[in-house]
Amino acid sequence: MSFVVGSGLRKRFVTRERLGLFKSRAKIVDALNGVDISIDRGRLLSLVGPNGAGKTTLVRIFATLLLPDEGKAYVGGLDVVGDADRVRRLVGLMLYPDKGFFGRLSGLENLIYYGMLYGLGRREAHRRAEELLKSVDLWEARHSPFEEYSMGMKARLGLAKALINNPEFLLLDEPTVGIDPVGARKVRELIRGLKREGITILFTSHNLYEVEELSDEVALIVGGRIVARGPPDALKQKLGFEPVAVVRAVCSGEERTLSKNGDGRALAALVREAVEAGCEVLEAYVREPPLEEAVVKTLGGS
């Protein structure tokens, strides 16, 4: 059995849509429509999909913050509804990079507070907070108030907060949103380090380059359903996107670009064909379609 399992998860939100002073109507949103998901221990699964697809809803169910209407979810064999208290001890959560902290308190004080929420004594929480502040490169700013942190620093503190209880399962919901490229790269390096430590991670992001860079597996979620899933390369193939062998050559004094679906073997064949046709090969390469292209085209974008 996988370390994280969700089967047949459904969640419907009912809100009131106001039509006038005394008129309103129920607005129903099916956020999850029977999601099956599993993550093996030590693996990183990324959820990608458009806004409102159900990514955050799924994250919140595994964080015990939201009750599913139907279906079951387990973390480490524990039911997220029935054993919520025990699940909370296993899970580290980062929901947004810039929220959840007390602006007037320093980064260190914020982390000590969160450590104490997870049952650490004050001294132990202090020690753990210092250790994490060093690892996320915030040591110099540990005594500065949170409200003076940059967005990137806030995100790194959010990651440190998610790790305060030494979680076995980490939920990262868009941890790099709104962060500058340098800050985002730092966060990605930290996540890569956590993967090496063997932490199981559920990650969501709209930045598909970082998803491709970090993920063992990617699940494409649309309209509350997982429509495709697999390692990034396999997912691209599943979505009909294959690597393309490309050869740029000069034939009869004219520059031409030759291409063929396939990888190294297709490239070798293409080069051979060009040479046999008397062309001078200028450049030959295999073009991997980025995950972003595959996902965007699958979702109907241009």
């Binding site: 929901l95 902290f101 929420l117």
Partner: peptide
């Protein structure tokens, strides 16, 4: 409004006790 309640509810501590 600050998002702290959500993190508090996701922790093993009781929000009311805190």
């Amino acid at each position: 409004s600050g998002g702290q309640l959500e993190y508090l509810a996701a922790s093993p501590s009781s929000p009311l006790a805190v």
